[in-house]
Amino acid sequence: MGNLPSNESLAEAFVRVAGGLTTGSDVVGYLGQLVDRSVAMLEVDAAGLVLADPQGNLDVLACTSEQARLLEQWQLQWHEGPVVDCYRSGRALAVADLGADRTTRRWPRFGPSCRGAGYVGLLAVPMRRHEQVLGVVSLMWCTAGGVDGAAVRIAQALADVATAGLLQWREQYKQKMLIAQLTDALSSRVVIEQAKGVLAERLGMDTEQAFGVLRGSARAGNRRLTAMARAVIDGVGEQRRAGPAPGSGRAAAGR
């Protein structure tokens, strides 16, 4: 790795990472900016980021190059490598020499593949909240020299700030989804109540019986209850717009 960034550069980077993700933001674009900024700040040659879904399956979300993306995908496919071990342990893992015998023994497929791609070392840092690991950021370099403790701390701090932003975004997104679901539920309830009133008047029954008819029709037609209710209301509206049926009203009275 090269020289460490200045305090001013660090402060600017943390501010941008912390404020880069808001409700409605492009998450993939945000994570892409994170790995780009990590490469620029720590002067490494490539970076990647994987995130876990609710079932704990990892997926590659951002990489600075196609080669780095392949290396990340191989780790997930082979279930071996620093990223996989970092995710399992929740601790940062630095590998100074990917060609060392012990590295090859530990990761028999990934070690030689990464070294063959030209990368000498790799640092994986977890994106975690308490004991929960959300994903892993990995940094790769092509020249010997390893990584010092200060660089590891900076990389981990960037990942921590990004994790906080990601969690906040998820919470805001959940709140938006919850509000939308509540609004939809209230709207559906209004439609269903209107349809119950229509059926009760049309069939000469109380609203509880009308609800039974509505629900039975929805099940028989394999339709959602709200969709069936809208069909009932729309059908009444179409009848009203069409006017009285032939033979009704005055015409019937004059027979």
Rank of each mutant, 00 (worst) to 15 (best):
E12C: 12
T207F: 01
D97V: 02
V152I: 06
G111I: 09
G24K: 13
N222F: 07
A18C: 11
M1L: 14
A92Y: 08
C86I: 12
L199D: 03
G24C: 04
L166S: 00
R241I: 05
G237T: 13
R189S: 15
R202V: 04
V84S: 05
K176Y: 09
A200I: 10
T104F: 06
D97W: 04
V27N: 02
P246E: 08
T22P: 07
Q73N: 05
M127V: 09
G235P: 00
V60W: 03
L134A: 06
L166I: 03
V125N: 04
C63P: 02
A100K: 14
S89L: 05
A144C: 12
P54D: 02
A229S: 10
G118V: 07
P244C: 04
G254R: 15
L98N: 10
P54Q: 11
I179S: 14
S217R: 15
D26C: 11
R189Y: 00
V125D: 09
I192E: 08
A251E: 11
Q55R: 10
E201C: 08
L93G: 01
V125S: 06
N3Q: 09
Q168E: 03
A96D: 13
A124D: 01
A117Y: 11
E131P: 08
Y119S: 04
N7V: 14
A92K: 01
L34H: 03
Q67Y: 03
S113W: 13
M140A: 13
M205F: 01
A46P: 01
I192M: 02
A47K: 04
G216D: 13
A252G: 04
E43N: 07
A252P: 13
Q209V: 15
R219Y: 05
V137P: 07
E12H: 07
V17W: 01
W74P: 08
A18Q: 15
T207K: 09
L58C: 02
L58N: 01
F14H: 02
V191L: 11
T183M: 05
N222K: 12
L93V: 08
G56T: 08
R105H: 09
A185L: 14
Y119M: 07
S248K: 15
R241Q: 12
D234K: 11
L178I: 11
R88V: 11
Q156H: 05
T103E: 05
E43I: 12
N7H: 11
R129E: 14
A150I: 15
A242L: 12
P5R: 09
R215H: 15
A220L: 13
L139V: 02
A210G: 15
A13C: 15
R115E: 03
R115N: 10
L93Q: 00
R129M: 11
A46Y: 05
V191C: 00
G135H: 01
L49R: 05
R105E: 07
V137S: 00
V147P: 02
G235L: 08
R128P: 07
W169A: 08
N57K: 06
V232H: 10
T143N: 13
R109D: 13
S89F: 06
V27L: 12
V133H: 02
D184M: 13
K196N: 10
G81F: 06
Q156F: 01
G116E: 03
A62Q: 11
A253S: 09
V147E: 00
L166A: 04
